[in-house]
Amino acid sequence: MPSEPAAALPRRPPPEADDGPGYRLDLQVGFLLRKAHQRHTAIFAQTIPLGLTPTQFSALVKLAEAGPCSQNFLGRLIAVDVATIKGVVDRLKARGLVTATTDPEDRRRTLLSLAPEAEAMVSALHTAGREITEKTLAPLSPAERRQLCALLEKLSE
């Protein structure tokens, strides 16, 4: 099925136009967030080294920031559930980017740490992260960027 040219797509009305009895999908927060997320994900995929997923990237960067910690705690730090962090950590360990050792203070607990290869990548990950943020927010003014981030933080509380 051929797609319609972009010029044929209707222009989006201002948000205040959504006060009528109809339902406009393109004015809904979930739809707009999904579109913004798709754009960000595409930028991420073009920029990040080693083909890491956004969640793997988050786990590595947070582990570098927090230092050795349990899998459960790392999951909480990056806001993912227990099942998701397990899969993320398993894949990072398989790639040799994360190591697991027994906690010397509590032998029942395992601590995760960055492997030497990942430690060497931290600076590049930070640089890539800044580039991704810059490209994602490029259409916005500095004030709009601050406002968007503040509003997203508020929605995430």
Rank of each mutant, 00 (worst) to 15 (best):
K35P: 06
A17E: 15
Q38D: 15
A79E: 13
D103L: 01
F57G: 02
T110F: 06
L77Y: 01
G67S: 01
S156E: 13
P5F: 07
L25G: 14
L92P: 02
E65N: 06
L50N: 11
L92F: 04
Q46S: 14
T127P: 04
D106P: 08
R34V: 11
L50P: 07
V80L: 09
E105K: 10
P142F: 05
Q28G: 12
R108S: 14
L52T: 04
L114D: 02
R95F: 06
G30L: 13
P5E: 10
L25K: 10
F57A: 06
E16G: 04
A83R: 15
A64L: 08
L27S: 13
A128K: 00
A7L: 09
V80R: 12
I78G: 03
P68L: 02
P54Q: 12
A138Q: 07
E144L: 12
T84W: 07
L114E: 04
V82P: 06
P142T: 05
P68R: 06
S123T: 14
P21Y: 09
S3R: 12
D81N: 15
Q147M: 13
R146N: 11
A7W: 12
L63G: 01
E105D: 14
S141H: 07
I78F: 03
T99E: 12
E4M: 13
I85V: 15
Y23C: 10
R145P: 07
L97N: 02
R130G: 05
H40Y: 09
D106R: 09
G75E: 00
T41Y: 11
P14L: 09
E157V: 07
G75N: 05
L125R: 05
P68M: 00
P116I: 04
L52A: 08
R76P: 02
A120I: 03
